[in-house]
């Protein structure tokens, strides 16, 4: 009976236990263009083990409202190795490497102002000034392409190709830009 209980407990552990990656148990290293991770953590049997992952993948748990906390670290089979609860729990240079890797994967230009917006046939055509210059994009079903976060002041836009744009503070936009987007908020 005890054996069975243990078995169930083990199975449960496997499912619910979160492995937190911190500066105490993890060493990140840059290999070629990507990061490797050497992690000392309990394995499935529950014994402590040090293992090196040749390439790791990062995925944000809360990409909109908490982009630099709760970052899932995955191995090449998309299996979660562990989670970084916040970049501050890592060594400075590791945090920097993770931040850079995240910025590379999540490409989101920041919109500074809206130059023009045209609504036509259920599509809207935008021209905006971003932190990397002028960009134009098209939205299908404009109202649903805007995602509001932080109580509606931060906006994420997804265009028809799947590109993302961010307006960090809608109230900080100049009046002319605000008027163009106001109708869809």
């Amino acid at each position: 009976m005890d054996e069975k209980k243990n078995e169930i407990k083990k199975a449960l552990n496997e499912i619910v236990a979160i492995v937190y990656i911190t500066k105490d148990n993890a060493v990140f290293e840059k290999k070629s263009d990507f990061l490797t991770l050497t992690l000392t953590a309990p394995n499935e049997e529950g014994t402590i083990e040090t293992k090196t992952y040749d390439r790791i993948y990062l995925h944000r748990a809360f990409p909109f409202d908490n982009p630099f906390s709760y970052i899932s670290v995955l191995d090449k089979d998309n299996k979660e190795i562990g989670m970084i609860s916040d970049l501050s729990v890592l060594k400075e240079e590791d945090a920097e490497a993770i931040r850079s890797e995240l910025n590379r994967k999540y490409y989101t230009p920041v919109v500074k102002s809206i130059i023009s917006m045209k609504d036509k046939f259920g599509f809207s055509y935008w021209k905006v000034m971003t932190d990397e210059g002028e960009l134009s994009f098209t939205l299908h079903d404009t109202f649903h392409s805007l995602m509001k976060v932080d109580g509606g002041t931060r906006i994420f836009i997804t265009d028809i190709d799947g590109n993302r744009y961010e307006i960090p503070d809608i109230e900080a936009l100049d009046r002319k830009s605000f008027k163009k987007i106001e109708l869809f908020l």
């Binding site: 070629s32 263009d33 990507f34 040749d54 390439r55 590379r104 490409y107 190709d161 799947g162 590109n163």
Partner: peptide, 12 residues
């Protein structure tokens, strides 16, 4: 089996 990055582009 080491992986390298070659280039990157937006979703277009």
């Amino acid at each position: 089996d080491t992986e390298h990055l070659l280039c990157r582009a937006d979703m277009q």
